[in-house]
Structures are given as structure tokens and as C-alpha cells.
């Protein structure tokens, strides 16, 4: 199952889960990263910087190694911009 860090910009995931060892798991859930939620990968920062995703009406950025613990099913879809 691909993680947020592994998909490309412009692709989307339907969240299946967040690695439980992740310290910010609760915070992410409060921000809308719930099971079944769709997230669209929008931007990635320089030199392996943060990844910004659209989730539930807002845009949230997380660091790459945290993004690697958000996993789900890749969506086949069209325009997300």
C-alpha cells in the first residue's frame, strides 16, 4: 500500500491508516486525516522538504518522514488542481 511520501504530486490517496508510532497521529486525525478521507498531494518542498496535501477543505503540510507513515489506496482520478 503506497504512502503519502511515495505517491507523486497530483496523485491522491484514500487513507487506510496512519502508523501508530507517529507522534502526530492524533493531531493529523484532528486535522482531517481520517480513515476513508481523500488526500491530494499538492506540493513538495526543496531538498526533501515538507509535503503539502489538500485534506477536507484545507491544505496541510507535513515532513517527508511523517508523510511516509500515512498510507492508503491510490485513487485513479483526473484533475485535482
Amino acid at each position: 500500500m503506497p504512502t503519502l511520501a511515495q505517491i507523486k504530486i497530483g496523485e491522491s490517496l484514500v487513507i487506510k491508516g496512519i502508523g501508530s508510532e507517529l507522534a502526530i497521529k492524533k493531531r493529523l486525525e484532528e486535522l482531517g486525516f481520517l480513515e476513508g478521507a481523500r488526500i491530494d498531494k499538492l506540493y513538495v518542498g526543496l531538498f526533501g522538504g515538507p509535503e503539502a496535501v489538500r485534506v477536507g477543505g484545507s491544505v496541510i503540510a507535513v515532513r517527508r518522514n511523517d508523510a511516509d507513515k500515512i498510507y492508503g489506496d491510490k485513487l485513479q482520478q483526473g484533475e485535482i488542481y
Binding site: 493529523l28 484545507s58 503540510a61 507535513v62 511523517d66
Partner: peptide, 9 residues
Amino acid sequence: RSSFVLELP
């Protein structure tokens, strides 16, 4: 290092 979660309004 602590976590970093940032909202882009």
C-alpha cells in the same frame, strides 16, 4: 527533533 505540521491558509 519534534514534528512539524503546518496549515497553509
